[in-house]
Design a binder for these strands. Structure first.
Lengths: 188, 188
DNA sequence: CATATAACTGACTAATCAGTCAGCAAAAGT
DNA sequence: ACTTTTGCTGACTGATTAGTCAGTTATATG
């Protein structure tokens, strides 16, 4: 019934398959089972639809992570939760992840306000700063630390999506690569 | 004089600024200072132009790395050369890197044959396998190892491009993050 | 029940785009 | 000197596209 959600769903599917270009609004409307006019009733321009889809997905992932982190106690546990939750979410939402990847490395990214982006990374950065101050992590530049963790997570995610290991193997890879990450950033 | 090169140059500039879409062939031709017909004389379709640009850039980076690696002796030295050369090249060719990033996470990637991609990563993978066999690196899955190294390099590169540190600071970051990478993958 | 507002339609359009083509200019070949 | 090939032109076109709008249906409100 919620046609706005239907549009986002259809747009996601088509954008991932064909790219932002090669996905006319007419096809999105058709895929969503609505008229072209309705699409523009909800999203005044195609650009706004693309950005809205990005923020929608980013928000959902953000919620998932925030929730899963809340249950952890030690910093190492929190970070591992962050790591596994991100990878699990990506596995269950491959299209969403591919879309975010495409969006992140496109000129569309510039259309989003800086604080809109920071909103989702700020909590993690604060946790990292605390861990540095408490001597849990190596004393390094916060931005570099954040970059290393995101980069590691992102690349292992790519690997898991491409190689599609069996569940037991997958868990082993996640656990081992987390240990490698932890070894790299933790104090001795 | 070489109009084909002029087209690639103009396309690179515009693709990075506006994306593949929002960059009509007419504007590429104008930017290159040639007629629309000439563009299609060299590149029968827009898609072929995009792919040709990608392979052109990939080739140039590949040459640079191969050359710089040839001077190194120990494996650690080779890997450091690979790391620094990639980061230095990216600094001097920011547009090229942004374009490759955009291309890699777009549906265009599918249009390139698998062996065309492997051509550039095969030499490094062989070096990595040797280093594992010789006990220099931890005994882990080659693909995961490769993923970790590329991911690390890529993310630090992103950081360096965004934060634009001074040359001395930059060298320090590169050296320190390489040590972190080495610590993560080397045996003890 | 009447009225107002919100959700929705789909034919339409102005603009844009990738790609064509007939032909010109210059170099290369014979 | 003549012919052929290659490089190059730019006006043109058919197809496609984002976005509009006049009007319809559903829902809420008084």
């Amino acid at each position: 019934m919620d046609k706005k959600a239907k549009v986002l769903e259809a747009a996601l599917k088509l954008f991932v398959e064909f790219g932002f270009h090669n996905t006319p609004t007419s096809k999105i409307a058709k895929e969503a089972g609505i008229s072209s006019g309705t699409l523009f009733y909800f999203f005044p321009t195609k650009d706004e639809l693309v950005v809205a889809l990005y923020l929608d997905i980013k928000g959902k992932l953000g919620c998932e992570i925030t929730e899963s982190i809340s249950q952890a106690t030690s910093f190492k546990e929190i970070l591992k939760k962050y790591y596994t939750t991100t990878l699990d979410w990506a596995k269950e939402h491959i299209a969403e992840f591919k879309f975010m990847e495409q969006f992140n490395s496109s000129p569309y990214l510039k259309k989003i306000a800086e604080d809109e982006i920071q909103k989702y990374v700020k909590p993690l950065k604060e946790l990292l700063q605390n861990a540095i101050d408490e001597g849990v992590l190596k004393n390094m530049d916060l931005e570099i630390l954040f970059t290393l963790i995101s980069g590691h997570t992102f690349s292992i995610n790519q690997y898991l999506i491409i190689s599609e290991p069996q569940e037991s193997k997958r868990e082993q890879i996640i656990s081992e690569t987390f240990d490698l990450l932890w070894q790299m950033i933790s104090k001795i």
